[in-house]
Write a protein that binds this DNA or RNA. Structure first.
Lengths: 333, 333
DNA sequence: TAGAAAAGTGGAAACGTTTCCACTGGGAGG
DNA sequence: CCTCCCAGTGGAAACGTTTCCACTTTTCTA
């Protein structure tokens, strides 16, 4: 009998329907994965890592890109909830105010944040953006920069970007530096060069720029060059993320290095453990999930300022001596 | 009555279960999306485009990364089929032999290939890799290269890479050039520099390298430099894909430019039209979905060969004159 | 006001599973 | 030969929808 059935199965290519099974068991073996965009390699890598971990555990990944739009985010979470996903891995626009996240919490669906610092006792795999920004300030200070700026994409719809800026402002203030100038960019804009020109004109004493992601940092280097500025001669640049190409360009990009794939797979394993009640993987301290990497795009401003003509007109030099900086650093400790 | 129900819905946060609905309607509003890896920005962008198109049409995207493994590919397609996806967008390892693809076809599930050239009358959004490779040969020939090589990742498990190589070989032969040397790399290997060194030693007359993806091309440029070679002075490089950073490096990367996001969204729309019976979007001719972009990584070999010491020892110059090349080009037309 | 049409309500069936229970038949042991 | 136990088999219920039909109530028209 068993034989005959098995043969028929083979012949007809029969397979159990997961949806019948899901209805019966009220479990779908599917996880919702919500990120802003795959165009950013950080999220692409994170999703890759998460998907792999889920796959290995026999779970499928339902992917949604919100395009940094909180409305799409809320809607997507609603849809995925209706689809009865067993869990969520998500990077939300703002972890403190996200409606979608609230609804997940109130329904008690297993979930883990990714890149969002966890409020309350949420689970999360993230980078402490504030601390990372402080490290960036240190790097600038060590090299004698006294006035720096922050350039961000999607500032309004990313709590990460805001936390970086906040930490950056705090670090500058601690070091007795001028409050960092802020340049926000709405879209992946083509007019970066123009915006940068204006920005540097408005902030003539500025010698360094902290940029909220590596990709934008590379574009900014390009724009700076188009304006006749040398990097790091006239303008030092520090990025964020640590994407691979940052090391392949000339000058190499100074940046905060993170490990998105590891973060994604970690968040995935945390969700899985919440689902099957296994012991959860230890979440790394957000202060330790990043590191600063020096690079050719960062140098001392004073020394090289002399030979830049256009630079001089755009941003007249007014730099502290190395000595001042040393004192400043002493004070910090 | 209606009122009271609506109020209760609000209070309890009730939502229809999609799985009950799916069971009843035998439709899941879910599409399976199968790609090799999101680490490659080409696929990340393509998935982004597809996901957007699906989202807009009210469909969710079930993502699987096969990691270039045909076995995982087959398995994934089986699982997604069991999950009753309404359609597939997929990049398979080999479109002619894929078991998964065959099973999709025999079950007549709406689907569209992505980046795989379509066998028979399959639907597909793809790049004609062979034609693109011919263009690459032209670019080399125009600049006087007579012996070139091909460097590929995952050669065995990517029909795209093989088709590129095939076209490349054909183009070289048509132009009376030596058969291009082939260097395969298994994994995203760290020993690229060593392999390259050996490869160039084995092929001393080689002056140009066609590399099956931009990312690997950038790494190769780096490796070449580490070997003391100048690009394009000692070695010209042409990549494939047209990723953004290719234009941000110095020298900029000569490459075949494609539009992955557009391809992804196109494939998605093709699947959607197959599902709801609407008129399908016109699939672009695979010969027109790419273009050659010149870049600083490609130049004539003869002129600059003189000043490279190490280059000379690694690959003694044996180049055709410009004149020969001109004649060659005439012959082609 | 009677009758017909419209609107609303309730209940059954079906989608494809799994779980549970009851039943059947055969073999072993007394 | 009877009883008991076990494996194997068949059938019912439940999961959450939608569709369909029958029935009741309301509204409109003659």
């Amino acid at each position: 009998m068993r034989q005959r059935v098995l043969i028929a199965v083979e012949e007809l290519g029969f397979e159990f329907s997961e949806v019948g099974r899901s209805l019966q068991s009220s479990t779908t073996r599917t996880i919702g994965c919500v990120v802003p965009s795959l165009a950013n390699p950080v999220f692409a890598d994170a999703v890759q890592g998460a998907q792999e971990a889920f796959q290995e555990a026999g779970y499928q990944t339902l992917l949604v890109c919100t395009n940094y739009d909180p409305e799409i985010e809320t809607q997507a979470i609603r849809t995925l909830t209706a689809k009865q996903v067993d869990g969520f891995v998500l990077t939300v626009s703002d972890a403190r105010s996200s409606d979608g996240l609230k609804s997940i919490q109130s329904r008690e669906i297993p979930h883990c944040l990714l890149f969002n610092m966890a409020p309350d006792n949420e689970k999360s795999w993230s980078v402490d953006d504030r601390s990372a920004a402080l490290k960036v300030v240190d790097a600038f200070v060590e090299r004698g920069h006294r006035h720096v700026g922050f350039l961000a994409l999607k500032f309004k719809s990313s709590d990460r970007a805001r936390q970086r800026y906040q930490g950056f402002v705090e670090g500058c203030s601690r070091n007795g530096m001028k409050k960092p100038a802020l340049l926000e960019i709405d879209e992946d804009s083509q007019i970066l060069t123009d915006l940068l020109k204006e920005f540097l004109r408005d902030n003539p004493t500025l010698t360094g720029l902290f940029i909220s992601n590596d990709f934008l940092a590379l574009e900014t280097i390009r724009s700076a060059r188009a304006l006749g500025l040398s990097v790091p001669g006239d303008l030092s640049i520090i990025g964020f993320d640590g994407i691979k190409v940052g090391m392949m360009v000339e000058p190499s990009l100074a940046t905060i290095v993170t490990d998105p794939k590891m973060m994604g797979s970690g968040a995935a394993r945390t969700v899985l453990s919440a689902i099957n009640g296994a012991v959860a993987p230890v979440q790394p301290d957000p202060k330790l999930t990043f590191s600063f990497r020096a690079g050719g795009s960062l140098a001392s401003p004073a020394a090289e300022r002399t030979d830049g003509e256009k630079a001089a007109t755009l941003s007249p030099s007014n730099n502290p001596t190395k000595k001042n900086v040393k004192i400043q650093q002493e004070r910090l400790k």
